[in-house]
Design a protein around this nucleic acid. Structure first.
Length: 276
DNA sequence: GGCCAGGTGTTCG
DNA sequence: CGAACACATGGC
């Protein structure tokens, strides 16, 4: 189906480091697996996309996944006219970014793996994790083309994983973190769905009770998995911006309620333009 | 081959 | 409290 949509650039989203299962399949085309489903997306024009699903699946799943109920227009307009010149540049550069509404458990395990890894390495481990512990599924286009893919593993499966097998996915020392965290989710000690309805700071506190989940990972999960927009992950790139661009004088409080979105524009801009 | 990566837990002042 | 260190692995 064709989708006319502002503030939606699939390349920017795919390269924004919030999701590790969105990959280029051809020029301007990406494939993503989420909620057990497979989708291909092609950017036709700045505000026009071709999605491989039908209207029903779009309304039932993808519309929400891509946060299309929310209009980023006013936010982009306000930030791109604000007093902060660097942020103005960052927002103009990443105007097509959106905060995805990912599955909480997938976000949790993905960002648990992300610690002390670069993005290509994270994607590799997540892919191997799905191949090894997910379910094989198949998608067929209207024309009959078939694509097989793996769903993201459930908490129960990872809770029962053998550390040695798990290490074959390249997760290294994070193996025990993943297994113990999966156990605490599987047995209900931490309820991710319920955490969606908690105040952001409280959700973060609960996430940090999980092994291997510190401040950074908890904020990523809160932002990308629970859609608490005040979650604000500070990784090496954001820290670099705070230090080198803002000389330690960035005031997050002026963006209360949506710091995570601001953070995402800065992250994408920094990584795209200030990398080595 | 060495440094770095969307860090965290532990230990030691 | 904060600083220093280990941790396993792959990208560049």
């Amino acid at each position: 189906m064709i989708l006319e949509q502002k503030q939606f650039n699939i390349q920017q989203i795919a390269e924004s480091g919030q999701c590790f299962r969105m990959d280029p399949i051809a020029e301007g085309r990406y494939a993503v697996v989420a909620f057990g489903r497979y989708l291909e997306i092609r950017q036709l024009e700045e505000e026009k996309l071709l999605l491989s699903c039908g209207e029903k699946e779009f309304h039932d799943l993808w519309k929400h996944y891509f946060d299309l109920e929310f209009d980023y227009g006013p936010l982009v307009a306000r930030l791109s006219e604000g007093a902060d010149a660097f942020l103005r540049e960052a927002v103009l550069f990443g105007q097509g970014l959106r905060i995805l509404r990912q599955e909480p458990f997938e976000a949790l395990i993905s960002f648990l793996i992300s610690q002390n890894k670069n993005i290509p390495a994270i994607k590799r481990s997540v892919q191997l994790l799905c191949q090894q512990y997910g379910e094989l599924s198949e998608w067929a286009s209207a024309s009959g083309r078939r694509v097989s893919y793996f769903t993201f593993p459930t908490p129960e499966v990872l809770a029962a994983a053998d550390p040695e097998d798990l290490r074959r996915t390249g997760v290294g020392y994070r193996d025990v973190f993943i297994i113990k965290t999966a156990q605490l989710i599987a047995d209900g000690t931490v309820d991710l769905e319920a955490s969606k309805h908690l105040p952001g700071p409280e959700a973060i506190a609960r996430l940090k009770s999980l092994p291997g989940v510190g401040d950074k990972v908890a904020n990523c999960v809160s932002l990308f998995g629970l859609h608490h927009l005040d979650g604000c992950p500070v990784d090496v790139w954001i820290a670099r911006a705070m230090d080198e661009i803002y000389s330690g004088c960035f005031d997050w409080t002026q963006y209360t309620g949506y710091c995570g979105v601001v953070q995402q524009y800065l992250f994408y801009y920094m990584r795209s333009n200030y990398g080595k």
